[in-house]
Design a binder for these strands. Structure first.
Lengths: 354, 354
DNA sequence: GTGAAAGCGCTAACAG
DNA sequence: CTGTTAGCGCTTTCAC
């Protein structure tokens, strides 16, 4: 040893046993005699020995590490989901290699590649794409368990997924607006387009959560026999764009009495735009957002929202992955878990002005 | 190979070269001939070879992974800091093993131990304690570079740290209140006590950010020759407790005209309490918070705050750690980096009522 | 129950 | 420039 940290050989020598026996007590396998256990433990403590997981991993082929890739760890939604994953992982003795890709698909690809090279035992990914999935399919092909988080992916092949009821939740949310008497309901949603296939395809195509929510909005309008109008649909790249477009809508279309925002970011922007306008909320215009946050109850009026169980989503993904890793259900068919969102009624929705 | 993933040996055999040469082209070291590079690359692609970092790590002694431990990844402050660390790490080719401890010191200890066993090349930790640091000292003793984030630690020994100007920032913030004419300024702060030593000690003791901010509050009062009152100091365990205590204060002490909140959580609670009371903000009572967030500009009045550069804090910690890892400055003395916060004046602070 | 020996997949000398 | 030979620190047969 001398230079580096002490190895199992140093401990064995110090305790007067073979490396094999030292390994048995330090590694917690086999059945060493109590007396030797004591001696080896003593030596280990005295020398300041600490196990080397990388050496262990190379022989066992297991790292006890899972890889997690999300688009933005600063987004409270993903922060909560990651928290759920993390809790599950630690409870099972796994550590978490986390990468935040900033919605950049190229970065996601290289991250997935890096995690494969690091030999993670499994992976949970919320991809930046719903159609490009060659990198995800390769994960499966390498025999590494994969769980898709919050969005499906057409190119990944048959794989476990843990999702939210985006379309149904949005449908219910817009129904709530309709029930209050609104007829002209605008929607402010993300401009991230689902990549459309050029040829026609029979199979259902994966979509981003915000697209599914938009579809749910359309479902509700159709069900109510409302034609809708192109001006009601505000597709925005970011919060600033959303705020501006809502501002414009508010002056250009006074007939619109309610706004449905499909993401927390869009909800904030819409709220800001209404505050800056001369319309009052909810007297003149109602607002219904997505995702519940601390500020939902800090603003006046308090914001009505569709609350998503982000922590549970992550925890469920962790559970599914850990199940695969335990080997128990490694053979069973891919599962799809869908969690329910709930509508939280507060003060930002009221009947339209008479 | 047959069963498992192909190894460098399989590739070498397929390409008709030695494992050493295959390693040279696949590992990117040495100087293999262009012709062989082509052949090896071809074979690697055909066989679906992917490097095994754990085998590489065991021989090089380097994992290209850094460990990061924070108390709560769901806290926007830490989420931003982690984002800063993550960006720096990835730019330098490192992955990040993240653990969120929930402010539980025992969990932090075992996490640090696990990261050591995983042989991370370096560690960044925002400890749940400012006095207990035996586990951190052990990291140093093992020769693993360590950077303290957001708080010092008395037990860790001399070590790099990246901090915020908590005390000075709070001092300036309260001065802002005083400048507006306030004399009775309450403070709502975290109840997390810095562990006090039993015996007397000469050396400066590390303190939590909220404690330092409280000290800055005291500095400002003293400088202004204001005696202060015990009733002005609200130490609270959590947001609910804070909201209740602020509510009580508002009715019991109408002479208090301004409130300084030392954390984002406390600021939210205080804001909520004021909204629920019959006092108006800022006409009757002013509020100054810590940490800037999206909702600061969504509420009415908009919240004046001390904004902390959380992302930069993380990025700076990453830079310091990476510097140590590059070997360049591995010998130099521990550094202490202190980042400046800034006061953002918005609508929640006004002169006291006449 | 214990030890000797053989690897895990790769890199690092060292010869050629 | 390329191949041979040792390991890295550990677990895992396999005899004893």
């Amino acid at each position: 040893m001398s230079a580096g940290r002490p190895t199992i050989i140093d401990v064995a020598r110090d305790a007067g046993v073979s490396p094999a026996t030292a390994g048995r007590v330090l590694g917690g396998y086999g059945t060493p005699a109590p007396e030797l256990v004591r001696r080896v433990r003593d030596s280990a403590r005295r020398l300041g020995y600490r196990a080397n997981d990388v050496a262990r991993s190379i022989v066992t082929g297991l790292t006890r590490v899972i890889g997690v890739v999300v688009s933005d760890i600063e987004n409270p939604f993903f922060a909560r989901a990651v928290s759920g994953i993390s809790d599950r992982a630690r409870a099972a003795g796994y550590e978490m290699l986390l990468v935040s890709t900033g919605l950049d698909l190229a970065r996601e690809r290289s991250a997935v590649e890096a995690l494969m090279a690091k030999r993670v035992d499994g992976m949970i990914v919320a991809s930046a794409s719903v159609s490009e999935g060659a990198h995800l399919r390769r994960v499966r092909e390498a025999g590494v368990p994969l769980v898709l988080l919050d969005r499906r992916n057409d190119g990944a092949g048959a794989v476990d997924a843990v999702l939210l009821d985006n379309r149904a939740a949005a449908h219910r949310a817009v129904n709530h607006l309709l029930d209050k008497g609104h007829r002209a309901v605008a929607v402010v949603t993300s401009a991230v387009a689902d990549e459309r296939p050029t040829g026609r395809r029979r199979k259902a195509l994966a979509q981003f959560p915000s697209s599914l929510r938009f579809a749910g909005y359309l479902d509700a309008l159709e069900e109510a026999g409302i034609a809708g109008a192109p001006e009601w649909v505000l597709r925005c790249d970011d919060a600033d764009a959303a705020a501006e477009r809502v501002r414009d809508l508010l002056t250009a279309r006074p007939d619109v009495t309610a706004i449905f925002a499909t993401t927390n970011v869009m909800a904030g922007a819409a709220f800001r735009a209404i505050m800056d306008s001369d319309r009052r909320c909810p007297e003149d215009v109602s607002l219904l957002g997505f995702d519940d946050h601390e500020w939902s109850t800090l603003v006046r009026p308090q914001l009505s929202v569709v609350a998503q169980p982000a922590y549970d989503l992550g925890a469920a993904a962790g559970t599914v992955l850990l199940g695969r890793l335990s080997g128990r259900e490694s053979a069973s068919a891919p599962s799809e878990t869908i969690l329910q969102s709930s509508l939280i009624v507060r003060g930002s929705v009221a009947p339209p002005p008479a």
